[in-house]
C-alpha cells in the first residue's frame, strides 16, 4: 500500500475512526500522515531496526483496519500505540529467539529485573490481565509527572535522555524518579502478592 506522508494532518481522530468504520482506505492514509512518526518511534525503541519497524508499522495498520470496526477507540493514538507495541514486541521476541538485540527496550527491561523471579510455578495461575490491572492501578495513583515517566520508559520504551528533554530536567533527575517509581511498584506488587 502506497502511503502519502508529505502533507500535514488535518483530520481529527474522530474523523479518522469514522473513515475506518466506513471501510474507507483513506483512513489508513490519514493515520499514516498523523501518527507514522510516533508509531515508528515506538517500534524503533523496541526492535531497534528500521526495516523491522517499517514492517511493524504496516502490520499495525492492518491490525487497526481489522480491529475497527467493531472497536471504536476514543483515543486513537493510545489505541494505535497499543497495537504497535504488541506487534513490535512479537517481532522483538521472534528476533530474540535468533539473536540478542541491543535495543532501548532491552535496556528498559533489564531495569525491571528486580521484579522477575524464578517462581513460574507459583505465579503461573495469575492472569496477565490481573497483573495489568494491578499495574494500572498503581500507575493511575502516581502524580502526572511520574506517570509520564513510567509510560515513556516502560510502555513507549523511550530513552531516558528523551524523557529528560521532554520534561525539561536532567537525566539524573529522571533516573532518580525511575528508581522511586520502581520501589513504589515493587512494594505495590508485593502487597498484592505478585512478588515474594
Amino acid at each position: 500500500m502506497e502511503l502519502q506522508t508529505n502533507r500535514t494532518a488535518t483530520m481529527s481522530d474522530e474523523q479518522i475512526v469514522e473513515l475506518y468504520w466506513q471501510r474507507d482506505e483513506q483512513a489508513i492514509k490519514e493515520t499514516d500522515i498523523k501518527y507514522k512518526k510516533f508509531l515508528l518511534s515506538v517500534a524503533m525503541n523496541i526492535v531497534h531496526d528500521m526495516c523491522d519497524s517499517e514492517e511493524c508499522l504496516n502490520d499495525t495498520y492492518i491490525g487497526t483496519w481489522n480491529a475497527i470496526p467493531p472497536a471504536r477507540p476514543v483515543a486513537l493514538q493510545a489505541f494505535l500505540g497499543s497495537i504497535m507495541r504488541r506487534t513490535a514486541i512479537d517481532r522483538f521476541r521472534a528476533n530474540k529467539r535468533q539473536k540478542r538485540i541491543a535495543s532501548e527496550f532491552t535496556v528498559s527491561l533489564s531495569e525491571l529485573e528486580d521484579f522477575i523471579a524464578d517462581d513460574d510455578d507459583m505465579t503461573a495461575e495469575i492472569e496477565t490481565k490481573e497483573l495489568a490491572k494491578s499495574i494500572s492501578n498503581f500507575v493511575s495513583s502516581l502524580p502526572d509527572r511520574q506517570m509520564f515517566i513510567f509510560v515513556s520508559r516502560y510502555y513507549i520504551a523511550d530513552p531516558i535522555s528523551t524523557i529528560s528533554k521532554e520534561l525539561g530536567c536532567s537525566v539524573s533527575t529522571v533516573k532518580r524518579e525511575i528508581e522511586a517509581i520502581k520501589i513504589g511498584l515493587k512494594k505495590h506488587l508485593e502487597s498484592e502478592g505478585y512478588l515474594l
Partner: peptide
C-alpha cells in the same frame, strides 16, 4: 513472575493512563 508476563501486563495498561500520558505529552510539547 516472568519477563513475558510483565511485558504483556504493561502492554495491557489501562487506556485512561495512556490518554493521560498523551495529553501531558501534548501539553509539554
Amino acid at each position: 513472575m516472568t519477563q513475558e508476563k510483565l511485558i504483556d501486563a504493561i502492554t495491557d495498561l489501562d487506556s485512561g493512563i495512556l490518554n493521560r500520558y498523551f495529553d501531558m505529552k501534548a501539553n509539554l510539547a
